[in-house]
Structures are given as structure tokens and as C-alpha cells.
Design a protein around this nucleic acid. Structure first.
Length: 280
DNA sequence: CTCCAGGGATGAT
DNA sequence: ATCATCCATGGA
């Protein structure tokens, strides 16, 4: 079974899959197996080339955002110690273009959870409601469509360790399945209108909405603020300040990080979590 | 404005 | 082996 390949400069597959933007890729041999939409995929990095099977080069390039001008994006980051250290630590980390429904559903499940646990929820949902597919000597499950989850019960979802999130996921799945929430049509909306639509869904607040905008709607300006990022921001950009409100942080981020704020956020986030850049 | 449910992994004792 | 901690959203 031969692998196809594409050039992938300024790319780090392991960092891209393990930085907390996606939750279902599993290590397999020298690479990873996972699903890109309905495609079961094996992907492996060798130097500045990506070897893969299970999807077209076009699908691979699009999902891993190999077209993002990473050097230019990084060059446009603000020059400060935190950003420089994060950028150095995250070399090659790219923001994926994830399927909209899958991304929305997973970030509804992500609330108040750590990455390890979100991965378990992802697998449980896929095993219970998704389709099993063989790939490169292994197998994966694709993510269940909204209509499938809409036809499930809160009890079935709770069995996937969703806890109180089951109710929100079920309610949102029903809205998406009925067409009342048209995720595809929303992609034409400007940022603020898109955020407002997403926040109207059960289980979606500002943080989850910004994650979905960043990871599934190519809104590279979207800057999700969670506790990790809040710590980094306060420590690095508001040192010694006693009371910093959420609104102050919000305004600062939107102005300071600008056009590619989402990349800046992901780099600061990953560096804080994995690089031990936090003093608390 | 404040308080807190909710639940499983993870780190500390 | 038990105990505290992590955490976004929504509702009281």
C-alpha cells in the first residue's frame, strides 16, 4: 500500500494535532490515523514532506492549512517576550480547517474539560454513533452527523461521559439537523454576526464560539480566552495590575494581536500548556 | 453583581 | 488510596 505525498514546509504535524484544537487523532506507527470528514486518513511527516493515504492531496492540504503563509503570519506578530518565546516553541503549528458541525459539537463538549477527557468524549461519540472505517492496518470512526445525534437521547449521550453537556449537545444537534441553524450559510456572515448566531446555540458562549470561528470558519482574528490564556495575558501584559476585567482583556486582545490574533492565541496557549511558561 | 452545578482526569498528599 | 484542583455555560 503506497503513500502519496505533498510538500509541507513550515509544518509540524505532531504539534498541530496535539495543541488542543482537535481531539481524535491517534498515534499509529510513525504517523497518525484520524478522520477528515468521511475520509479515514493516515498521515506521517518526514522532514518537510507529508506522506498520507485515505484522502486526496487537495483535502489534505486544505485540512492542514498548508496554504497558510505561516512565515508572514509570524512576522506580523507583535514583538514582545511572551510572543517571541511562544512563536519559537510553536514553530510549524498550523490552525486546521475543521468540519463545522464536528468542531461545534466537540467544543460544546469541551466546556469545563481538559484535553485528555475531551479526547475520551470524542472517541465515545464516534464509537457510539459514527461509522467505523479501516485505514492503513488500523481503523477509525468518523464523526456522527447532526441528524444522527439529534435522533439520540440525552441518556445515550450521557453514556459518552458528557454529563450536563448532553442536554446542550442534543438541543444544538436538533437545531442543526432541522436546518433552523444553518452552519454552512453562516460562513457568509461577518465576524460579529457569526459570533452572535453561534452564541444563540445551547451550550455555546463567547469562548466556544470563538474556538469554532477560529477552527472551522477560518476567522483567524477570533481570540478565544480561557483560563490558560487569561493567566498568560494578565502576567505578560498587565503585570502587577490588581483588577483586570474580562472586557479589558477582550479589548486589549482584539487591538494588540490584530488580523491573525487566533494564531497568536494558539501559540501562547500551547506554549503555556506544554512549554511550562506559566508562573501562576 | 455573586454563587454554583457538573464529572472525570490529573496532581498532590 | 483518598483529596483537591481544573474549568465554560447558564440559571438562580
Amino acid at each position: 500500500m503506497g503513500l502519496q505525498q505533498v510538500p509541507a514546509t513550515d509544518f509540524d504535524l505532531e504539534k498541530t494535532l496535539n495543541c488542543g484544537q482537535v481531539f481524535h487523532w491517534e498515534k499509529s506507527g510513525a504517523g497518525f490515523v484520524g478522520a477528515i470528514g468521511r475520509n479515514a486518513v493516515y498521515v506521517e511527516q518526514r522532514g518537510d514532506r507529508l506522506f498520507f493515504t485515505g484522502a486526496s492531496a487537495k483535502v489534505i492540504g486544505r485540512y492542514f492549512s498548508l496554504d497558510h503563509p505561516l512565515a508572514d503570519i509570524c512576522a506580523a506578530f507583535p514583538r514582545d517576550p511572551a510572543m517571541t518565546a511562544a512563536q519559537d516553541f510553536c514553530r510549524g503549528l498550523r490552525l486546521l480547517r475543521q468540519p463545522r458541525w464536528e468542531c461545534l459539537a466537540m467544543f460544546i463538549c469541551s466546556s469545563m474539560k481538559q484535553v485528555a477527557h475531551i479526547r475520551q468524549i470524542s472517541l465515545a461519540l464516534r464509537k457510539s454513533f459514527g461509522g467505523r472505517k479501516a485505514i492503513y492496518g488500523s481503523h477509525v470512526y468518523d464523526f456522527p452527523r447532526a441528524v444522527r445525534l439529534a435522533a439520540s437521547t440525552e441518556e445515550e449521550l450521557r453514556a459518552c461521559a458528557l454529563g450536563y453537556r448532553a442536554k446542550n449537545l442534543l438541543a444544538t444537534a436538533r437545531r442543526v439537523a432541522s436546518g433552523e441553524a444553518n452552519l454552512k450559510a453562516w460562513s457568509k456572515l461577518p465576524d460579529d454576526a457569526l459570533r452572535a448566531e453561534l452564541c444563540g446555540l445551547p451550550g455555546v458562549g463567547a469562548k466556544v464560539a470563538n474556538c469554532v470561528m477560529l477552527f472551522a470558519y477560518e476567522r483567524l482574528r477570533a481570540f478565544p480566552i480561557d483560563v490558560w490564556i487569561e493567566r498568560v495575558l494578565k502576567q505578560q501584559y498587565f503585570p502587577g495590575k490588581r483588577k483586570v476585567t474580562g472586557q479589558q482583556l477582550r479589548t486589549f486582545c482584539d487591538e494588540y494581536f490584530g488580523e491573525h490574533g487566533g494564531y497568536a492565541q494558539q501559540y501562547l496557549f500551547h506554549h503555556a500548556r506544554k512549554g511550562g511558561a506559566i508562573a501562576k
